[in-house]
Simulated scan of single mutants.
Amino acid sequence: MLARYLDCAIDHVARGGGMLVNYSELPPAMEEAIPRHFGFVPDAWERAAMAAAGRRNAKAPDQVFADDTQRKRAAVTPAVAAAVTRHPEGPYARMEALRAGAAALA
C-alpha cells in the first residue's frame, strides 16, 4: 500500500503538482521552503506559531515531539526489512531523486 501511495505522489509531481519534502527536512522546511512554495509569507506571529506547532507531537499534540526514528529502526524485524526492500524501496528512491532534482532547481 505504501508503494502505491509513493507511486501516486510521483505521478502527481511529474504532472507539475505538489512539493516533495522528506521527513528529515521537517520542521525547518516549514520555515522557508513550504510557505514559499505556496506563496505564503508568514509574519513574525505566524512564524512563532508555526515553530511552536513544530515542537509538538502531531499524533499527540499535548506532548513535546521526541525523535524516535532510531528506536523504531532498531525494532525492525528482518521480515519487515525484507518487505520494505521488496515493495516501497523502488518508488521511494524514485521520489527522492525527483525531490533532489527539484531542490537543485530551486
Rank of each mutant, 00 (worst) to 15 (best):
D67T: 07
V84A: 12
R4I: 05
H12N: 11
Y5V: 11
M95D: 04
L6C: 00
A48T: 14
E89F: 10
P28H: 08
A83N: 03
A53L: 05
A74G: 05
P28N: 07
L2E: 14
E46Q: 12
T85R: 03
A48N: 07
G101N: 07
A100T: 07
R94T: 05
A44C: 06
L2M: 15
W45L: 13
A74I: 01
A102Q: 01
I10Y: 08
V80Y: 09
A44Q: 09
M95N: 03
T77W: 11
E89S: 15
A48P: 04
D43T: 09
R71T: 13
S24Y: 01
A33T: 08
A58Y: 09
L6H: 06
R73G: 09
E31A: 12
A103Y: 01
A93R: 13
E32C: 12
V13Y: 06
M50C: 10
P61R: 09
E46K: 13
L105V: 01
V41C: 09
P88E: 02
I10P: 11
R99N: 00
K72V: 05
Y5L: 14
R55F: 00
D62S: 06
A3F: 10
G16L: 00
A58C: 13
M50Y: 09
G54C: 08
Y92Q: 12
D67V: 01
A3Q: 11
T77M: 00
L20F: 10
V21F: 00
P35V: 00
A51V: 02
G18N: 01
R15T: 03
G18L: 06
E32Q: 14
A14F: 02
A75D: 10
R99C: 02
M30C: 15
A52W: 11
G18A: 02
W45N: 15
R86H: 09
H12D: 15
G90L: 08
K72T: 02
R94A: 03
R47M: 02
G54T: 04
R94Q: 02
D43P: 03
A60Q: 15
K59C: 09
R73M: 10
A66D: 11
V64L: 12
F65Q: 12
D11I: 04
F65G: 11
L2T: 14
Y92L: 14
P61Q: 02
L105K: 06
P91E: 07
M1D: 15
M30R: 12
G16K: 04
L26C: 05
G90V: 07
V21I: 12
P27L: 04
V13D: 01
A9Y: 10
F65I: 12
A97D: 11
I34P: 11
E31P: 05
M1V: 14
A3N: 10
L98G: 01
L105P: 04
K59N: 08
C8E: 15
V76T: 13
W45F: 10
A100E: 08
I34R: 04
H12P: 07
F65K: 13
A14P: 00
Q70L: 08
A104P: 04
A33K: 06
R94K: 00
S24E: 15
H87Q: 13
A81M: 04
T77S: 05
D43H: 00
L20W: 06
A44E: 11
C8Y: 13
D68T: 14
G54N: 05
D7K: 08
G101W: 02
A100M: 07
L98E: 03
A52T: 14
R36Y: 10
R4L: 00
M95Q: 01
